[in-house]
Every structure is written in C-alpha cells, then in structure tokens.
C-alpha cells in the first residue's frame, strides 16, 4: 500500500499496534540478552572470575577483619555479616543497574537515541538489563554464602526454608529493581557526575539496611529510614530463610508473616510510583535535551 498523508493513524507499517505488555515483554527479553552479552562477554575469563569471586570475598574478609578488631567474632555475627554481604551483592547490582544501563547507552555505546526513538519504552529495557546484572551478582552472593559455610556459619537445620525463600527473594529483588529505576530516571537528567550517584546511594543503603550491623547501632531517626526500606526486610527475611535465626532488635522481633506483609506492601508501593517517576525523569531529560547528550563523563 502506498504511503499517504493522513493514513498513518490507522495503518501500521507492520500490522496492527500490539498491546503494550507484549511489546514491553519483547523489549525486556531483548535487553536481557544484550545485558548477558555485555556482562558475560569479558575478554579474559580470569577477570570475570576475579570480579565475581575475588571481589566479594575480599569485601567479606575486610568487614570480618574490621569487626574482629573489638574482640573475637562469634559464628552468629559472621552469619549475620555473610548473609548481609551476600544479599548486598544483588542489591547494589539491581540498584545501580538501570542507571548504568542508561548512562552506558548514552555515554559509551551512544545508542540511547536509537532505542528511545523506537516504539519500545526505556523502562523494560532498563529493567531487563538490571535483572541480568542482579542475576550475575547472585553468583557472587552464592560464593559469599559458600565462604560463610566454610567459616563455620551454622545454616538452618534441614536446609533453607524454601517457602520463605521463594516468597522473599522475588519480592526483595523487585523492590530493589523498582528503586533502581527511580534512580535511573533521576540520573539520566544529570549531566556531570551522573555515574557517581548510584554508587553513593547504594553505599548509603548498605549502611542503613542492616546488611552489616544491626539497626540498633544507628541513631533513632535513622532507624526509621532503615525500617522504611524494603531492602532491610528483604535481608532479614533471607537471614531467616538461610540461617534460621533472627536479627537482634526490632527486625528480630517482627513475626515472619508480618515481615512478608511489610516487604510485599513496600514492593507494591515502590512499583506503584517508580515507573511513573522513571517516565517523568526520562521526559524531563527529553525536555532538557539531556537524554542523548553525550557529556563525556
């Protein structure tokens, strides 16, 4: 059919306009494949191994060394740190993932204008990239937990609580990815130093979410912020599923059912607002002319 002015609103070049969900799923899968190619396609496998194995173990060793300065470490404390450190491998990857994907496409690969100019939304593209990064980080998390076992950390009798694990793991992951896309929507508006913000946020969350020390160590008002983070409850849930123990203080006092409810509610709230904030951020970047502007940062 010849192209004619006025026929565009009704006629598609390749058939009827498909639903948003189908297009979003297609984009998510395509971007996940891309992320796998990028993240897993290291030139030297030895570097990939170093990144995935040595780095998390080095951090774990560092934290345990610092904590041992005050005296001998008991296995409960080691278990607390091991799970927190393991989960945070995934947290940081998922939290920083969307921002890194957007900035990589803008600054390094210079493809963001071509992706943005497709019918696909940047939202599933960013989520797909982030999920793959988080999955790869999951390998590092397993390595850290394995190290914990070698250090004598007593795992839950009878093995992990699989029911709790199956409920907690996806909820927590979703909540972190949701926070990550908010961060991506903010950082894509920034011209300079955009790369440093995700890491700064990730590090702050690391200190607040009870990954490395109990919430009671924090000042009172800051504990409120910690309790509002779904990540805090995610890590606690995973401790219970893997170690079969609870953390000290307010986290430990929370019944598991209520913990799940808080985590689910927090994740739902995050996903209620995070796509909107992401789209608003992208539109703001488009308005400012920042979306595809290479800043050489």
């Amino acid at each position: 059919m010849p192209i004619s002015a006025g026929s565009a609103p009704e006629v598609r070049p390749f058939g009827p306009l498909r639903g948003g969900a189908a297009d979003a799923a297609r984009s998510l899968v395509a971007s996940a494949r891309l992320a796998w190619a990028i993240e897993g396609n290291w030139a030297q496998p030895v570097y990939l191994a170093a990144f995935l194995i040595v780095r998390p173990l080095a951090f774990l060793g560092l934290f345990l060394a610092v904590l041992s300065i005050g005296g001998s470490l008991d296995v409960a404390t080691i278990g607390f740190v091991v799970v927190g450190q393991a989960v945070f491998q995934i947290v940081s990857a998922a939290l920083e993932g969307p921002t890194h994907a957007l900035l990589d496409d803008r600054e390094r690969y210079r493809t963001i204008r071509y992706i943005f100019a497709t019918p696909s939304s940047l939202l599933p593209v960013s989520i797909g990239r982030s999920l793959v990064k988080a999955s790869i980080a999951g390998f590092s998390a397993l390595i850290v937990i394995g190290a914990g076992v070698l250090l004598g950390v007593p795992m839950r009798a009878g093995g992990p609580d699989l029911v709790l694990l199956v409920l907690v793991l996806p909820l927590g992951l979703l909540s972190v990815v949701g926070l990550g896309i908010v961060l991506g929507g903010i950082c894509v508006q920034l011209r300079n130093d955009a790369w440093s913000y995700p890491e700064a946020v990730s590090s702050t969350v690391f200190l607040l979410c009870g990954a490395i020390f109990p919430l009671e160590v924090l000042p009172g008002p800051v504990q409120g912020i910690s309790a509002a983070l779904p990540i805090t409850w995610w890590i606690e849930g995973l401790r219970r599923a893997l170690l079969g123990t609870t953390s000290p203080g307010i986290l430990g006092a929370m019944p598991t059912n209520e913990l799940l409810l808080i985590l689910a509610a927090g994740t739902a709230v995050i996903w209620l607002i995070s796509p909107r904030l992401f789209v608003a951020g992208i539109n703001r970047a488009r308005e400012k002319g920042q979306l595809d502007r290479n800043t050489a940062s």
Binding site: F14, R26, S27, V29, A30, Y114, T118, S120
Partner: peptide
C-alpha cells in the same frame, strides 16, 4: 546480526 536482531525486537517485530 545480534545488534540488528535486538533492534528488531525494540521495533516490536
């Protein structure tokens, strides 16, 4: 081919 295939997905094909 991989890059073109990826964009084909983004175009909704």
């Amino acid at each position: 081919r991989e890059q073109l295939a990826m964009f084909a997905q983004f175009y909704g094909l």
